[in-house]
């Protein structure tokens, strides 16, 4: 079953940081990694994230579970870009039939893989420590996003565990009716489409009922809303954001000074 419950110690410094400050930090670090095509910038950012990890309060089990996929994705990107690089310059490291790996391609491939790791690690640290309710509160209070869209989305997200449990029930009910995927990929795809349709019909019905329940409690009254939970940008949150910006800038500066920096355009 799927849930959004944060997988961290709630009193850890990063877990207690204002969600907008965290969002800003994740955007700053990820975007810097995204714009740099060299190997040093993402490596420095990854080091910074490693330093930040103990302060996030994310427990080791969930962290490794999530990072397992991350490293796999990073490795995939690295290998694909290395093996299938269009321009193969530099010393030849391996040649096996059509397969050819060169030093330059390997370095570039590793660099691209590292970027994936930076984006993913930043995402895990930022979002695994954030409760969706707190994020929605901060979005409406600090960024002044539309409460209707923000709270509407939040209310829908509450249905995630319900809908994921429903997926299982629908699949089970299909077996009872004599419908099963088995090994045949075509049958599996048909079963998947049929299950998805039933899930969506149920989801639409729920959406109608949820919207009615929200309107009945005055959600669409057009009046100004107050906030039961106050989110603030405290000095520590500003400091946190500034640190994230500084780390991102520093990674680029070091990389430029070292002469490796390359902008991805």
């Amino acid at each position: 079953m799927l849930t959004f419950a944060p997988v961290c110690d709630r009193d850890a410094p990063i877990a207690r940081t204002n969600p907008i400050a965290k969002l800003f930090a994740v955007v700053a670090v990820s975007t810097t990694a995204l714009l740099a095509a060299d190997w040093l910038t993402p490596l420095l950012l990854l080091a910074a994230l490693a330093v930040a990890t103990p302060f996030s309060g994310v427990r080791l089990g969930p962290l490794t579970r999530r990072l397992r996929w991350l490293w796999f994705a990073g490795a995939t990107v690295a290998v694909v870009n290395t093996v299938f690089a269009a321009e193969k310059t530099g010393a030849e490291l391996l040649s096996f039939g059509p397969l050819e790996i060169t030093a330059d391609a390997l370095v570039d491939g590793m660099a691209l893989g590292l970027r994936v790791c930076v984006a993913a690690t930043a995402g895990v640290l930022g979002f695994a420590t954030t409760d969706p309710t707190d994020l929605a509160d901060a979005l409406t209070q600090q960024l002044r996003t539309s409460p209707r869209f923000t709270i509407g989305s939040l209310a829908a997200m509450r249905l995630l565990p319900l809908l994921s449990a429903e997926w299982q029930q629908i699949t089970t009910a299909r077996r009872a009716r004599g419908m099963e995927g088995g090994r045949n990929p075509l049958r599996r795809a048909r079963l998947f489409a049929s299950t998805m349709f039933t899930l969506l019909v149920g989801a639409m019905r729920r959406a109608g009922r949820l919207a009615a329940a929200m309107d009945a409690r005055g959600f669409d009254s057009g009046a100004r809303r107050t906030h039961a939970r106050i989110q603030r940008m405290r000095p520590a949150d500003w400091l946190f954001s500034a640190c994230a910006a500084a780390v991102s800038a520093a990674a680029v500066v070091v990389s430029v000074a070292y002469g490796t920096f390359r902008l991805l355009v």
């Binding site: 959004f4 409760d131 969706p132 309710t133 709270i151 939040l154 209310a155 997200m157 509450r158 249905l159 319900l162 729920r206 009922r209 949820l210 329940a213 929200m214 409690r217 005055g218 959600f219 009254s221 009046a223 100004r224 809303r225 107050t226 906030h227 039961a228 939970r229």
Partner: peptide
């Protein structure tokens, strides 16, 4: 299932009051 709006019990009761601008 579809009458509750928020993830935490107290927040859910508070939801209607926020809309009333209490």
């Amino acid at each position: 299932e579809t009458q509750l709006v928020m993830a935490r019990s107290g927040d859910d009761v508070a939801f209607g009051l926020e809309n009333q601008a209490v």
